[in-house]
Amino acid sequence: MKSPFTNIHSTFLKETGGIALFTARFFKELFKPRQEFEEFLRQCFWVGYKSLPLVAITAFIMGLVLTIQSRPTLVEFGAQSLLPAMVSVSLVREISPVITALICAGKIGSGMGAELGSMRVTEQIDAMDVSGTNPFRYLVVTRVLATTLMLPILSNISNAVSLYGGFLGVNIRGQVSWSLFWTQVFNALSFGDVVPAIIKTFFFGFAIGVVGCYKGFNSTKGTEGVGQSANSAVVVASLLVFIIDLVAVQITDLLGLT
């Protein structure tokens, strides 16, 4: 009798292999002529602009809460003047990119999984194929490119909004001027804090796009399959965000950028 672990291993290997092949096909199609520029712009609008309110609200609350929660500990050590510096480094290096990516994994990853899954089970992808449009290039390449390029932009906006939340948080119990707060923030941040954080968001965006499209594009089993695609797109994309983050931190550390 097969052990349950055999099934888990086999599913894991199948999924990993499937995603690897899907990624390889993405790069193969990316450099072929007749790219779908209009659809790419439409996806940038959906991924970027439509996610902006959710990302901004979350970032603002995140900055505000982190500042309020950190204050008592710093006050205990008499280091409350370090609050803007500590908050800015935490947000820009780690919290803001990861939280933005997780929000996008939930919103965009599930959306792509459900949309492409529904197109697969209602034969819309086959109809595209029959009409002479390469559905992989039209649906997948445009979406993966859009998430890869939009996530860093969203993450930077999230940085700015969360730091603004931090400024308000500092001023709830204290008195720090606008210019002093930003001077402290920029003095605390270095090249090694900002650039690696931006670079990893490209990978977060790429992973979210690839997983969302892979799950949707290969959806089966009717409407039940669409639900499963959306759900597993979020789970796998979120997990990949953490794995990429772990690898990025190790690489940054090895390069001495911490």
Binding site: E115, S118, M119, T122, E123, Q124, D126, A127, M128, V130, S131, G132
Partner: peptide
């Protein structure tokens, strides 16, 4: 194949209209 498919129409059972 794409050029040939232009000469062959296909009406899908589910209609397959692009709903967006």
């Amino acid at each position: 194949l794409d050029n040939l498919r232009a000469k062959v129409g296909f009406l899908f059972q589910s209609n397959a209209l692009y709903d967006s």
